[in-house]
């Protein structure tokens, strides 16, 4: 099908885009990479009076280090994140996960800001930003505010973004010595949305897990922090038995949806398997099972 008619603006300055958002609010929709929005428009699942195309706002396309923070402009393409030496060095979890985002011709267009704003519960980026306890900068004509990932995601395709706000920057803490990362997912075919995916950070200090951060996609209405697993792991000596217990705790604590791709029980089993696998790998207990 073809989209319903709409008017179109493509400002090349952030301030112009924010002015348009202030004027049109929920009558307008922001178009970033369009890899989720345009299919929905083609199917007429949504329609808008005005499409604000932000692709010409080059000031939103960057990856840079600022002290202990990795700053990623919201318009940065998944492909550019994948190829970035800065991301590989300072946010290895992002580098590993982004290669699972769809196919190359999708990653050349799709943006991290678009993916986070869309908040698809099966998408990788929201889970990763949640696992890394990232901060999102939302800007409107009247100012900017920082929202932690834990508060940003508010359920199925729902975020803290107000109709007059634009997500402009993603801030991630730079990887510290001792922190190890892993991401894995299960999908029917390479490039498909994950049925379930899990990202993990495990901080090993003197043979113990000083800090664990686990987040998953595909097991709830949004990305889900696996706090039950984290609490079980922290301050413990990493062993296979410990990760098996953490996996069971994570699976017991989630409330996955049943849909045409998988039922809730299957998703719970996948989650347990993935928590164990990424946990073991992050803790250096296994190098295998990395499928790519």
């Amino acid at each position: 099908m073809k989209p319903a008619p709409f008017n179109y603006r493509a400002p090349d300055k952030l301030t112009e885009a924010l002015d348009l958002l202030a004027t049109y609010g929920s009558d307008a929709k922001v178009l970033a990479g369009g890899q989720s929005l345009v299919p929905a428009m083609n199917f007429r699942l949504n329609r808008f009076a005005l499409l604000i195309d932000i692709n010409r706002i080059r000031e939103l396309e960057y990856i840079r280090i600022d002290g202990q923070v990795l700053r990623i402009g919201a318009l940065t393409r998944h492909r550019d994140i994948e190829m970035s030496p800065l991301v590989r060095e300072h946010a290895p979890l992002v580098a590993e996960a982004v290669r699972h985002v769809a196919h190359l011709p999708i990653r050349t267009r799709g943006t991290i800001g678009g993916s986070l704003s869309h908040a698809d519960p099966a998408a990788e980026s929201p889970a990763i930003v949640l696992a890394l306890d990232g901060t999102l900068v939302l800007q409107s004509r009247t100012g900017a505010r920082s929202v932690r990932a834990t508060e940003f995601f508010q359920g199925m395709f729902s975020t803290a973004l107000q109709p007059n706000e634009l997500l402009v920057e993603i801030q991630l803490p730079v990887a510290q010595p001792g922190q190890r990362f892993a991401f894995e997912e299960v999908s029917r075919r390479r490039g498909d949305f994950a049925i379930v995916g899990v990202g993990a950070m495990v901080n090993l200090q003197h043979g113990r897990i000083s800090q664990a951060r686990f987040a998953a996609c595909g097991v709830g209405t949004g990305p889900v922090r696996l706090r039950a697993a984290e609490q079980l792991l922290e301050q413990q000596v990493p062993t296979a038995a410990l990760f098996a217990r953490a996996a069971a705790a994570a699976a017991a604590a989630v409330d996955p949806q049943t849909d045409i791709h998988a039922d809730a029980e299957y998703r719970r089993r996948l989650l347990a398997g993935l928590v164990e696998r990424v946990g073991m790998r992050a803790a250096g207990l296994s190098e295998g099972a990395k499928r790519d």
Binding site: Y8, A10, L31, G34, Q35, V38, P39, N42, D53, N55, R79, L104, P105, I106, T108, R109
Partner: peptide, 13 residues
């Protein structure tokens, strides 16, 4: 120069 889906891009873009 980059592969992309032409059904997910508007001509105006």
């Amino acid at each position: 120069g980059r592969a992309a889906r032409s059904c997910l891009i508007f001509a105006v873009q």
